[in-house]
Simulated assay, not measured.
Amino acid sequence: MKEQGGIRVWRGWRKETVAWDKFIRHLATIFIPATWQVMGRLGLRLYVPSVLPESKPEGLPDEVALLFYPSQSAYLAARSRSAAGRAYGLLHEAVFAFTPERRSTSTTAVSWSPGQPAPLQDQPFHRQATGNGCRFCAAQRVVFLALSHQQAPSAMPGALFAVLGQCCDEAVVYGENAFTLAWLAVRNAGEFDRGMLAAELASRLPASTLVAVHVAERMQFQVDYFAEFDGLALQSDQTLFFLPADRIPEGISARASALE
């Protein structure tokens, strides 16, 4: 399987000493906007951060993200070869834990397609768009899913790809023992029905619980870290979707929502 290099999945656990409200405030006013404003100038092309519910099952991360860079080398250069990138790296330590029990980290995705062996755990897998499939860089919305389980079956990521459909839309799935995460590029969020999705997941993956289903629209967001800024409208159980302003079609509003 060929490494995609620039596609990364972040899993972040907050420090136990940081209260939930403070954690959300830090993400909304500093960490998430800084990721897009700083790393966006250093090569970050797409950014989909998600805050999970505060009452989620034990073992799941508090904040996760899908990030697209041009390549692995571009990502490494952005993080280590500029003062801005190194300063951004230090922001993580303000609220995220890096202990063995709560080790916040990101991992590079590798490519996967139906018909290949089931993806392994602890490794993000990327299904490229084919034919008329929707790509993340051209999507109007991104669907984010989070599932919890006692112990993931070896076929979990592959089964989740099947639940997302054998369609040709672009998707990324990451799974480990306690949880599985998935992102899907979509043109029309109306195609997703939470009840039907939960029923299909329960049928295919009976040992799993659906923790979050978010549909995030592209956001209009000023990439200027010197501008006055009070913070993003962010709350628990929510996903945001950032793309460069020149790729945002007219009429797309600056909002994100969770399916009820």
Rank of each mutant, 00 (worst) to 15 (best):
R204I: 01
D246M: 01
A245F: 09
L240E: 00
F221D: 05
A245G: 07
S208H: 03
L232Q: 04
P244T: 07
L205S: 01
R204N: 05
H214W: 10
Q235A: 11
A202V: 04
E228Y: 13
Y225P: 00
R247H: 11
Q222R: 11
F229T: 10
G231P: 09
F226S: 14
P249F: 10
V211E: 05
Y225D: 15
L232S: 04
A202T: 05
V215P: 00
L210Y: 01
Q238W: 11
M219F: 07
L210G: 02
A212R: 08
G231K: 11
Q220M: 11
P249V: 04
A233I: 15
T239F: 03
L240M: 11
R218D: 05
F229Q: 13
A227H: 15
L243E: 13
E228G: 09
V211C: 03
Q238L: 15
E217T: 06
A212F: 12
E217C: 03
P244A: 12
T209C: 07
F226L: 15
D224P: 00
V223Y: 05
A202H: 01
V215L: 12
R204A: 04
S208L: 03
Y225Q: 12
F226H: 14
T239H: 06
E228V: 14
Q235R: 06
L240N: 04
A227P: 09
I248Y: 07
S208R: 01
G231D: 14
A202C: 03
L243Y: 06
L240V: 14
A245K: 05
D246P: 00
Q220K: 12
Q222K: 12
L240T: 10
A207G: 08
Q235H: 12
L243M: 08
Y225G: 06
V213Y: 03
L234R: 05
R218T: 06
P244V: 06
E228K: 11
P206T: 06
A216H: 07
R247E: 15
H214S: 10
A227E: 15
A233K: 11
D237K: 00
F241E: 05
E228W: 09
A227L: 15
G231Q: 12
M219I: 11
R247K: 14
F242C: 07
I248F: 08
S208T: 03
Q235D: 13
F226V: 11
P249M: 06
F241G: 02
Q235E: 10
V211N: 02
D224V: 04
P244D: 08
A207Y: 05
D230M: 09
A207F: 04
T209E: 13
V215S: 10
Q222V: 15
F241D: 02
Q222D: 14
A216D: 06
T209P: 00
D246L: 00
L205M: 13
A207W: 02
F242L: 10
F229Y: 14
R204F: 04
M219D: 07
T209Q: 08
A202S: 10
S208P: 00
G231N: 14
M219Q: 09
R247W: 15
L240W: 12
L205Y: 02
V213G: 00
